Amino acid sequence: MSAYVVFTRMKTTDQEELEKYRTGIKATMKDRPIEVLVADGKHEILEGDPIEGMVIVKFPSVKAAKDWIDSEAYQDIARRRKHGAIYHGLIAEGVS
């Protein structure tokens, strides 16, 4: 069953760190079954607090998503994201 990783950027705290994250993230996706569906495009808040942006990434399974998130390559670059902005992140299982 497919799974989706969703990150919402609440507030940028260090643009330089965030740019380093954006530059390095693609290398962590190489040779993995990842499909980027949304990447900081236009959005409209329907309910809740405003956000600056969001990313939605599709994986073939929750395990594949967690394998990527837990990988050394992703964890190494994720520190840039954590220093660059305040995010909320989640994994959601798709429907069958």
Rank of each mutant, 00 (worst) to 15 (best):
43 H>E: 05
22 R>Y: 12
54 M>Q: 15
63 K>S: 08
45 I>E: 12
29 M>D: 04
63 K>G: 06
54 M>K: 14
44 E>Y: 07
50 P>A: 04
42 K>S: 03
71 S>Y: 02
11 K>T: 08
6 V>D: 00
4 Y>S: 07
26 K>D: 04
94 G>T: 04
47 E>F: 12
51 I>R: 14
53 G>H: 03
10 M>K: 15
70 D>L: 09
30 K>C: 00
40 D>S: 11
9 R>H: 05
20 K>F: 02
16 E>T: 08
88 H>S: 14
17 E>P: 01
49 D>Q: 08
49 D>V: 07
33 P>M: 02
75 Q>Y: 01
45 I>W: 02
48 G>I: 08
49 D>K: 09
39 A>R: 15
83 H>G: 13
83 H>T: 12
54 M>G: 14
48 G>V: 09
30 K>V: 09
8 T>G: 06
31 D>F: 02
52 E>N: 07
45 I>P: 07
23 T>Y: 12
55 V>N: 10
84 G>V: 12
4 Y>T: 13
83 H>Q: 15
38 V>P: 09
8 T>H: 10
68 W>N: 06
70 D>C: 09
68 W>E: 12
69 I>P: 01
57 V>E: 10
12 T>F: 04
65 A>M: 11
88 H>I: 10
88 H>N: 13
78 A>M: 14
68 W>K: 08
35 E>Y: 05
90 L>K: 05
20 K>S: 09
91 I>P: 01
66 K>L: 15
75 Q>H: 04
31 D>Y: 07
45 I>G: 13
80 R>N: 14
23 T>P: 04
16 E>K: 13
51 I>F: 04
80 R>I: 01
32 R>W: 00
36 V>D: 08
31 D>E: 12
56 I>H: 11
86 I>A: 15
47 E>K: 14
55 V>A: 11
39 A>N: 14
57 V>K: 07
58 K>R: 14
59 F>W: 04
83 H>P: 05
45 I>K: 14
9 R>T: 14
76 D>V: 03
10 M>N: 12
28 T>F: 02
90 L>N: 01
18 L>C: 04
92 A>Y: 08
50 P>I: 07
86 I>Q: 12
93 E>T: 03
4 Y>C: 00
82 K>N: 15
44 E>V: 10
65 A>T: 11
75 Q>A: 06
78 A>Y: 06
70 D>R: 11
6 V>W: 04
30 K>E: 03
73 A>S: 11
52 E>S: 08
52 E>K: 10
76 D>T: 15
36 V>S: 04
2 S>L: 05
35 E>Q: 05
65 A>G: 09
93 E>W: 02
80 R>T: 04
48 G>K: 01
35 E>I: 13
72 E>I: 10
42 K>P: 07
49 D>W: 00
47 E>N: 08
30 K>H: 02
21 Y>C: 01
41 G>W: 02
69 I>V: 13
3 A>T: 10
10 M>H: 15
9 R>V: 13
41 G>P: 07
15 Q>K: 12
90 L>I: 15
93 E>D: 05
96 S>I: 06
57 V>I: 15
73 A>E: 14
81 R>W: 06
23 T>R: 13
56 I>S: 10
47 E>Y: 03
7 F>G: 10
11 K>L: 07
87 Y>K: 07
47 E>C: 14
84 G>N: 06
75 Q>K: 13
91 I>D: 05
6 V>M: 01
62 V>L: 05
84 G>R: 11
44 E>S: 10
61 S>T: 11
32 R>I: 00
80 R>S: 09
81 R>L: 06
50 P>L: 01
